[in-house]
Simulated scan of single mutants.
Amino acid sequence: MEEVMAAAEIADYLGVSRQRVAVLVERADFPAPVAHLSVGRIWRTSDVRVWAAKRPNRVHEDEQK
């Protein structure tokens, strides 16, 4: 079974707030969710890791504004 992440797991993985994740997942370059469940959207862990690897040190952009 493939690993998946919800917003809380993405926040923990990236080291950002859930509010920041809400902004990041709306970006055009963020991976599309693989499902919409009653608890919210979920993403493939591998997709999130690849996305984050392409953006070193840029995940926190605008978070402190």
Rank of each mutant, 00 (worst) to 15 (best):
A35C: 10
S38N: 10
R41T: 01
T45W: 02
A11V: 08
V50W: 03
M5C: 15
V4Q: 10
V50A: 09
V59W: 09
D29C: 03
A11I: 12
E63Q: 09
E3T: 14
A22I: 00
V25P: 02
A53D: 15
G15N: 11
R27F: 01
E2M: 10
E26C: 04
F30P: 03
A7E: 14
V23D: 02
R20G: 09
M5S: 11
V23K: 08
G15Y: 02
R44T: 01
L14V: 02
H36K: 11
V25E: 01
P33Y: 09
W43K: 09
M5R: 12
V25Q: 04
V48H: 04
A53H: 14
E61G: 05
M5N: 13
R58V: 07
W43Q: 01
V48N: 05
V21Q: 06
D12Y: 08
L14A: 07
V34W: 08
F30M: 12
R27E: 12
W51S: 06
L24D: 04
I10H: 11
F30Y: 05
L37R: 13
N57S: 03
V50T: 06
A6W: 03
I42G: 10
A22K: 07
V16H: 07
M5W: 15
S46M: 00
R49D: 10
A52E: 00
S38C: 11
R58Q: 10
H60D: 14
E61Y: 09
R18V: 00
E9I: 14
E61A: 15
H60P: 01
H36W: 14
D62E: 12
M1S: 12
I10W: 04
A52L: 10
A22S: 10
R20A: 13
A32H: 00
F30E: 06
N57H: 14
G40T: 05
V59R: 02
V23Y: 02
E61H: 13
A22M: 00
E63Y: 10
P56R: 06
A7K: 15
Q19R: 08
R55F: 10
V34C: 14
V21G: 13
E9Y: 15
V23C: 05
E3G: 12
V48I: 01
P33M: 04
V39H: 10
H60S: 08
V4K: 14
D47Q: 11
W51K: 05
R18D: 04
S38I: 09
P56E: 13
R18E: 06
P56V: 03
Q64H: 08
Q19L: 03
H36Q: 13
G40I: 09
E26L: 05
A52S: 08
I10D: 11
D12M: 08
E2I: 10
R20F: 05
D62R: 03
P56F: 01
R20E: 01
S46K: 04
S38A: 03
P31H: 02
K65A: 00
E63V: 03
I42W: 10
E3Q: 15
P31I: 03
R18H: 00
A6K: 15
P33C: 14
V21L: 06
V23G: 00
R55D: 03
S17V: 09
R18L: 05
D12G: 11
V16Q: 04
R58P: 00
E2T: 01
G15D: 02
A6Q: 13
V25R: 12
V50C: 06
V23P: 01
L24V: 06
